[in-house]
């Protein structure tokens, strides 16, 4: 073992406690980090790029939650979602106009499709809303502030929303 290797080993040994202190017991951060990137299937169209507005979160049955995204004129979008099997089937995805609250797309009218592609002709903000069918004590307790404790559902799972976009390709000559 030469001097250089010895020094490197010693430095690593001294740094070891720092890694230990670097660990945190704060688990309040959102779980399912990067789920949309790792679990949702991307479009076959190579021109689609994933946007930073893609999100993932932890859900229980009976819960709904929405995320606000901006969509821009002159772009095509593909919005898709994926989820853990524990949450069951028939998950609803809606795209809602953020200003008027009009539902622009509802996948329950589209055979519960997990992806939707569209072209934008007016820049605006929309909500992508996910609703998990069924019920759970945690979801039911959301609106009840009198409860001291709520029985936990272990049927929790991740949902990811993948938002991809590209410049709308020109049509015709």
């Amino acid at each position: 073992m030469n001097i250089k290797t010895l020094k490197l080993s010693l430095a690593l040994l001294l740094m070891l406690p720092m890694f230990g202190f670097g660990q945190t017991n704060d688990y309040s951060m959102r779980k399912c980090f990067g789920y949309q990137r790792d679990s949702c299937s991307r479009s076959d169209n190579v021109y689609y790029k994933m946007t930073d507005e893609s999100r993932s979160a932890l859900f229980v049955k009976g819960q709904s939650s929405r995320v606000r995204i901006s969509i821009y004129n002159g772009r095509d979008y593909r919005v898709s979602f994926c989820h853990d099997r524990v949450l069951g089937e028939g998950i609803i995805m809606r795209i809602i106009d953020a200003e008027t609250e009009n539902t622009l797309y509802d996948n329950s009218e589209d055979n519960f499709a997990t992806e939707f592609e569209f072209t934008v002709t007016q820049t605006r903000d929309v909500f992508v809303e996910i609703e998990i069918p069924g019920s759970s004590a945690l979801a039911d307790a959301e609106n009840n502030s009198d409860l001291i404790f709520v029985r936990k559902d272990t049927d929790m799972g991740c949902v990811g929303i993948l938002v991809e976009h590209m410049i709308t390709p020109p049509k015709g000559f």
Binding site: Y27, R30, F59, Q63, S64, S65
Partner: peptide, 9 residues
Amino acid sequence: EAITPVLGF
């Protein structure tokens, strides 16, 4: 005990 995980987006 544990910190309650955040649900939803």
